[in-house]
């Protein structure tokens, strides 16, 4: 479990890092916290010949509140998100997800930008970003661009980033005051990837569901939105039956995988159960 030989640079600025990526093309990989890439390299499932370590670049780790959104620097660690008072107050969904990723070592090293760029369909943050309608700001040779979460996660381990682009910041729209969310993760052990997880965010107005977003982890080749369940609940008065009916449609249109942890049928069932529990937890209606 020793990686194949590779060269390594640690640029001090984003333009330098982009230049390194341009220079080495598809042979290069960006290294952030290293908790996804390094294990793959040790198994020689990934054999980049060049690593661009962005960990020395200043000012990529922050959590800031702006007028319209909350901004997270790409190198913000899971630990920092887990213990941020701002995130806890404004984005409890993200805080809860952060607290459930891996173990303490992983949370201390792993970064939200790395987790997003890795685009693991069983990862927790991609689903959260999808449910929270996040925008991802990338820097590349042609400058900066913003990519919506729904366009960012393309396929298993494939994001919309161009080979020489680096994720710089994640922007999450500020939820209205009568909005809350939760992340329910189902796994066999505490430190595991999710078998299925649900990221739900609900905004209420006068006892009705004004807006609901339900993200699904582990239900397909990329994070998904439970569109049918969202449609079924939008505009409805909060009541146990309404939550139940909407949740039953959580897995509609998904084709979850089969593996040692469960069948597609079991995953679809879990998606419905977790969606209902998440909605109940958010709305207090049971």
């Amino acid at each position: 479990m020793i990686p194949a030989a590779f060269d390594y640079v640690a640029p001090r600025s984003l333009p330098e890092a982009v230049a390194d990526l341009v220079k080495h093309g598809s042979e290069a990989k960006v290294l952030a916290g290293g908790h996804s890439l390094i294990p793959l390299m040790k198994l020689r499932l990934s054999t980049p010949s060049f690593l661009v370590d962005i960990g020395r670049i200043q000012d990529l780790s922050y959590i800031r509140e702006a007028d319209s959104h909350i901004a997270l620097g790409a190198l913000t660690t899971h630990h920092e998100i887990e213990f941020s008072e701002l995130v806890k107050a404004r984005l409890p969904l993200l805080q809860q997800a952060a607290a459930q990723i891996g173990d303490a070592q992983v949370r201390n090293r792993g970064t939200i930008g790395g987790a997003a760029a890795h685009a693991d369909p069983n990862g927790d943050f991609p689903t959260c970003l999808l449910a929270l309608d996040a925008e991802l700001i990338a820097v590349g040779p042609r400058g900066e661009r913003s990519i919506k979460a729904q366009d960012f996660f393309v396929d298993t381990f494939t994001s919309a980033l161009e080979p020489a682009e680096i994720l710089r910041e994640i922007r999450i729209p500020r939820p209205p005051s009568a909005s809350s969310g939760t992340y329910l993760k189902f796994s066999r052990r505490s430190q595991d990837w999710a078998i299925v997880a649900v990221a739900a965010q609900v905004s209420l107005r006068e006892g009705r569901v004004e807006r609901v977003a339900i993200g699904l982890t582990g239900m397909g080749p990329r994070p998904l939105r439970a569109a049918a369940a969202e449609r079924a609940l939008t505009g409805k008065a909060v009541a146990p039956d309404a939550l139940r009916e909407a949740s039953a449609q959580a897995a509609d249109g998904t084709q979850p995988p089969e593996d040692l942890n469960g069948s597609p049928e079991y995953r679809r069932h879990l998606a419905a159960v977790l969606t209902r529990r998440a909605l109940e937890a958010i709305t207090g209606s049971k």
């Binding site: 189902f186 066999r188 469960g262 069948s263």
Partner: peptide, 8 residues
Amino acid sequence: ASPAKLWQ
């Protein structure tokens, strides 16, 4: 006794 097995 995995969850999937018990559920089934």
